[in-house]
Design a protein around this nucleic acid. Structure first.
Lengths: 188, 188
DNA sequence: CCTACCGATCGGTAGG
DNA sequence: CCTACCGATCGGTAGG
């Protein structure tokens, strides 16, 4: 692993643990066992690290959803695939996922704008699945946008408790969540 | 409104907008039209402001859930009441709710520990409702804790878009969310 | 509530 | 990758 990757990995852990602003370059240097000034041989600025984390995660989410929605099938199937893809990205790197979800607001322009546009395009894939399910009678929900955001919100807390060594696999988590979201709590 | 309340209100808005760490006492003073040093006539420290916001919101959530679970009824009814109470607190003060949800980790000990204990006791009320619903056959869910956290997660994104002047009232939002969570997306 | 100020720390650069 | 250092800013205090 290159020094640059090591910097990014340590920074990801610290950004998740204490937040971007509360993490100093000296904290990061200490975790790497070098001096703060030395970090700048590999990266241009503190924010560049955040940019790399946020946009790399965004790419991973897009790759997942693109594969999920390209398959044919019912809206139920496509939603299950989308949920599974989202959970897979979240669980593959929980630290980067947490930074992606909570620290993006410290991006400066024009990166912030680009980030928000990407996020909206991502959410649009979920809205489209909901919409098609409403149209063909598979789903019954009050509002397409409302439903899409509720789904994503219920997925995005996973990083707070998921452990790779835990008893549930990413696919099992995705299946449980899909079942809850599709069928509800009620014992029909 | 007392000066102390004004300070807390402005701080809440700034903490939500930029985060606790990224908000300086000079930013806060500027928003109030006074000098940074003057703030310390009313509060002891920057963190004290955060403590007051977080624990006041915690109290409000507890008041809501206590009233909701004290009523008799089915697990479905009690869950609807709990969701409505939670949404009511979230929508009554979206800025303080956002700070409560995202900035609590900047509390120092022993406040952090106390905060996390309170949060767990709050979540336990939701777990208890789910559990009783499972036992009497109203609910069918894979895991009680999993279900409770999914519910709370799907509620806690409201602060990102709720506007008091919007077309949906807090009760309508709560009803839509309860319906989605109880019945699922599927058109049964 | 202000002026004046404290020591500490910030992100980052120069030069080797 | 280090030493040495920059100007800016931080939370907070003294004294009025």
């Amino acid at each position: 692993m290159s020094r640059k990757d090591q910097i990014e990995q340590k920074a990801t852990a610290l950004f998740k643990a204490h937040g971007f602003t509360a993490t100093s370059m000296r904290d990061l240097a200490h975790a790497l066992g070098i001096e703060a000034a030395s970090i700048y041989s590999h990266i241009r600025s503190k924010e560049e690290i955040l940019q790399r984390i946020c946009f790399r995660m965004a790419e991973e989410f897009f790759e997942g959803i693109t594969a999920a929605v390209s398959e044919e099938g019912t809206a139920v199937d496509r939603l299950k695939n989308a949920v599974a893809a989202h959970v897979a990205v979240l669980t593959r790197n929980t630290e980067a996922a947490a930074v992606f979800l909570h620290e993006w607001r410290h991006l400066s322009e024009p990166f912030l704008l680009e980030f928000l546009e990407m996020r909206d395009r991502y959410e649009a894939h979920f809205r489209a699945i909901i919409r098609s399910g409403i149209h063909n009678g598979e789903f019954k929900v009050p509002d397409e946008k409302f439903a899409a955001l509720t789904i994503l919100s219920s997925l995005n807390w996973i990083h707070t408790w998921y452990k790779p060594e835990g008893k549930m696999s990413a696919q099992e988590i995705a299946d449980s969540l899909s079942a809850m979201l599709l069928n509800g709590l009620r014992n029909n």
